[in-house]
C-alpha cells in the first residue's frame, strides 16, 4: 500500500528554513531556489502533478545528529550492541546502525600495513561510522525506488519504512559512508533512527566518545573519492530534473 507522498506546503516551508540547506545548494550552483519558487511548487502540488509518480525527495533536516570522537573510542562495541539489542532484541553488530567492528582491527583502509594503518593493529585510532542524517539530496532516500526512506516525524531522522522496503539494497549502494545495514532476517534495510531522540549508542558508550548534538551538515566530510550520490534510480533522477535545471534552460514542467 502506497502512502500519499505528495509534498505539503508545510514541508517545503520547513525545508527552506532548514539550516544550511538553501545556502549549500546555492553555493554549489545546482539550483536557484527562492521561497517563491518553493511556494509555487507547493501550490501546484507538483510532486504528483508530473504524472510519472516520480517522487520528489525533499526531507526536512533532522533535529539532531550523532557526533563521534575517534580519539575517545575504546573499541568495545557497546554502541553496536546497544543499537541492536535494545531496538531489535538481538546482539548483532552487522545490523548495527553505528559501525565500529569494521574499523577496530585496521581502520577503514584495511590491513594495508605501514605507518598509516589505524585500529588496534595500527595507531589505535578507531573511526566510528555514524549516519550523517544527510540534508537534501539524501543519498539513501534518493536512491530508494520505493521511497521507503522517510523523515521520522519526531526527530527528522531518515528512517526506513520497513513496510515499504523491498530489500533491493540500492540505499546500501548509495550511502557514501556505508552506513546502511541490512536486516537479513527481515529482508529489509536498516539505518540509524536516532532512537526517538535518545540514541541508545550514545547512552551506552563507556568513554563518552559519542554525543547527540543539534544537527549540522556533516555530509561534506568523508572520502573525497566517493560520489555524493552513488546510485540514483531513473525514476528518482527524473524528479531531480524538476529542480536541478541545466544552466540557461527552463524546466519543461515549469509553467
Amino acid at each position: 500500500m502506497n502512502k500519499d507522498r505528495s509534498i505539503s506546503s508545510e514541508w517545503i516551508e520547513r525545508a527552506a528554513k532548514a539550516s544550511g540547506w538553501e545556502a549549500a545548494l546555492t553555493r554549489r550552483g545546482f539550483l536557484k531556489l527562492s521561497g517563491c519558487a518553493l511556494a509555487g511548487l507547493a501550490f501546484l502540488n507538483l510532486g504528483e502533478a508530473y504524472g510519472e509518480n516520480a517522487p520528489l525527495v525533499i526531507l526536512d533536516s533532522a533535529q539532531g545528529v550523532i557526533l563521534a570522537d575517534p580519539t575517545r573510542c575504546v573499541a568495545c562495541g557497546r554502541c553496536e550492541l546497544a543499537c541492536t539489542e535494545y531496538n531489535d532484541g538481538r546482539a548483532q553488530p552487522s545490523l548495527a546502525r553505528i559501525k565500529i567492528a569494521r574499523a577496530v582491527n585496521f581502520g577503514l583502509a584495511g590491513p594495508t600495513g605501514g605507518e598509516a594503518m589505524h585500529g588496534d593493529w595500527g595507531d589505535g585510532l578507531v573511526v566510528q561510522g555514524v549516519c550523517r542524517q544527510c540534508p537534501h539530496p539524501v543519498p539513501c532516500a534518493t536512491a530508494c525506488p520505493q521511497n521507503a526512506i522517510i523523515a521520522d516525524p519526531q526527530t527528522g531522522a531518515r528512517v526506513v519504512d520497513a513496510a515499504q522496503c523491498l530489500g533491493c539494497r540500492l540505499c546500501q549502494q548509495a550511502c557514501p559512508w556505508g552506513m546502511i545495514a541490512f536486516d537479513e532476517q527481515a529482508g529489509v534495510a536498516a539505518k540509524c533512527t536516532l532512537c526517538h531522540g535518545r540514541p541508545k549508542c550514545v547512552e551506552a558508550c563507556p568513554a563518552a566518545a559519542l554525543r547527540y548534538v543539534p544537527w549540522r551538515d556533516l555530509s561534506r566530510d568523508g572520502s573525497p573519492t566517493r560520489p555524493t550520490l552513488s546510485v540514483v534510480p531513473p525514476e528518482t533522477a527524473k524528479a531531480c530534473l524538476d529542480c536541478h535545471v541545466t544552466a540557461g534552460t527552463k524546466s519543461a514542467k515549469e509553467p
Binding site: 575517545r72 575504546v74 568495545c76 562495541g77 588496534d120
Partner: peptide, 10 residues
C-alpha cells in the same frame, strides 16, 4: 593512547 579490551567490556 587509550584503554582497550574485549568485546562489550566497558
Amino acid at each position: 593512547v587509550r584503554g582497550n579490551g574485549c568485546t562489550a567490556c566497558p
